[in-house]
Design a protein around this nucleic acid. Structure first.
Lengths: 213, 213, 213, 213
DNA sequence: TATGAATGAGAGTTCATTCAT
DNA sequence: CATGAATGAACTCTCATTCAT
């Protein structure tokens, strides 16, 4: 029993080394999120990020190749997380309109809880810095997957006669735009309304706008 | 004749000095628009802007206090221009829904024709750099005026029973978000659709979404 | 007369702007020579060079693309100067052995007077830093021209039966090696001998070594 | 048996601890030779050397005080080795001219077989980095011993009337310079000649150059 | 004793801004 | 006024060295 537990010490968990390594990456990513959100890519400095994460400048470079790589990884991770959260919530829902409602709620909620990330996403989101555009393919692809998911739900609703005709991608983009702008506006205003209000507002507007006559 | 021309030199026009001064400002603003649009605020350099405008670096500083001031003035001017164009078109239209249609068309058209500006507006638009937030009040105010105009039209339509209830400002923001995102998407995609298509798409979606039952 | 002199003000000379520009380049090159000689390429810093030349760091970059470009230009210029000095002295000398004597004397003298340069030349001389090897072609070519000149004189002496057979380039390289090493040794020793002594020593050794039996 | 092996463990050899210690030093020195030769002192990094030797970065510092100490020790060891090889070959040769021939052949051969070392020796050889010149005394002294050996052979030949008069050290330095430069040139050229050719070339040139009339 | 992650000083380079001409 | 060379602070990134494990 004892020896067994000794053996199993790291079963089901990562070895300490790797665990710590990931923690530090996390620390840096979190600090980067805050700083990038506050200042944007260029105005943010590696030293600020390092200081905020309570590491030395050089340490950042042990975990990320350079400033842009850190930025991309941050964005990619967050978008992936959002996409996966949405997928999880939508997975078992067969009614596409119902699924859309859930998607909008999850997304508005996610943005409400990750304001720092949202600032980056909305304001500098798909900006590309430097020359190496290939580095961005991962992020771009994830973003496209998210749009595809939205578009497929809309298409599905159209086929069932619930939504009227029209290019599904355009509906997806328009819906996305409403959510982004309403969240941005909410972030800047002195929190009059709860973000939940805006969620239902978006849903009402979009669902009536898209519904079949 | 001679004396006449002497007198008329500055009749109905600004004195030469002032005229030239404005022309130079214009040159610089135009160059700045192109360069900021292509590279974003930080990556753009004053020297590039000056060279593009065919002036020396130092000259820029005779017309604008610093880089940020130039950026803000450019943005403010463009938004003001947009707002005034909209106002002109909407002025004599008494039906608020009709006015809204015109507003959307004018705005989508404006963005379609001022892509350089739109890149700035959408991507870095409301980003503030530096600490001095007060500098931005002018731009912010103009932007708010534009949103107010939108909101008032919506409120007007609500009062006439054409639109259903709901915070007018939220409708305004949502409509704005759709337009921005659809234009952005159009800028990045390989021009499948004409932007005009997207204009009518936005109108259909919004008007049905907002209409009273 | 007066007006004539006014017109001729810059005849036969460079305009002030260009003159000053060259002077500053000179200042920087001179400072770079001293610093590179004392520390070698890597250990020398742009800031040291700038400070020595009494300019700001950034100024160096107005005249040279980067650190390596400055280094290459410095080396190239000096070697070119040496080559031209030699050519000038040798031009009218028809006897190849006599020309060789002059060449050796000029070169030893040049090194004696440009010790800083010599340190660079001898110790790090043909080292290439960074990846861009093409940048070096100019310098390399000039150096090869110098070796060719040496080799041609030797070949000429061989044809006249003054020197014995053997690959002229090897004689050139060997002679070059003697001069370099003797100068290096002289630089490090407490100036016992005048460098002129070493010049005659090299000549005696080489000419007897190479002479036909 | 057991006790025997226990006893013999360190018979005729160093204790295991010390043996291992020396082995590690060797490993590191060998790796350092390759890396320094390929990149030069500054561009080489301790981490590269450690990785090449298959140790961790920190381990290098258990065996050498710092980067410069490692560099100096490497150089010193190699020069010592060369000096000893020469001494061994020359020890029993009574004719100084014969001994010189052997010396040149051994040295050219040594350089041909230790190109990595030669690159260091010739290109950065006597460069000193940092301020602490005293660290270099060991290397310098060994180098001087080598030059002395050369000079003594020459002096000996002079006394026997085989070589003409002249400062023996200058002959030594000149001979050294020829060898260095010819080897360098050979390293850079597309191996036309075998290095052995150059060895005989050096001997011919020097011996005839130095011989008494 | 060996490890290798963390450190942080220091390097090269850029560019907003100033100012003598 | 217009110019554009000079400035120097600030930034990204590297790497010799240290030290907890």
């Amino acid at each position: 029993m004892n020896s067994g537990s000794l053996v199993e010490e790291s079963v089901g968990a990562l070895p300490r080394r790797e665990r710590e390594r990931r923690q530090r990456r996390r620390d840096i990513l979190d600090a980067a999120e805050a700083v990038f959100a506050a200042k944007g890519f260029h105005a943010a400095s590696i030293e600020q990020i390092a200081r905020k994460a309570e590491y030395a400048t050089g340490t950042v470079y042990l975990y990320f190749q350079d400033k842009e790589a850190l930025y991309i990884e941050l964005l990619g991770e967050k978008i992936r997380e959002l996409l996966e959260t949405i997928r999880r919530h939508v997975a078992d829902v067969s009614d596409p309109v119902e699924a859309l409602k859930i998607l909008v709620r999850v997304r508005m909620d996610y943005f409400g809880r990750h304001r720092a990330f949202f600032r980056i996403y909305a304001r500098e989101g798909m900006n590309r810095y430097e020359q190496r555009r290939d580095r961005w393919t991962g992020v771009t692809r994830t973003y496209e997957e998210y749009l595809d998911l939205l578009a497929r739900l809309i298409q599905s609703a159209q086929r069932r006669g619930r939504f009227r005709k029209g290019e599904p991608r355009l509906y997806a983009v328009a819906l996305s735009g409403m959510m982004i702008q309403l969240t941005l506006d909410w972030l800047q205003s002195p929190e009059e309304h709860a973000p939940a209000d805006r969620t239902e507002f978006v849903l009402d507007l979009f669902l009536q706008g898209a519904q079949a006559d």
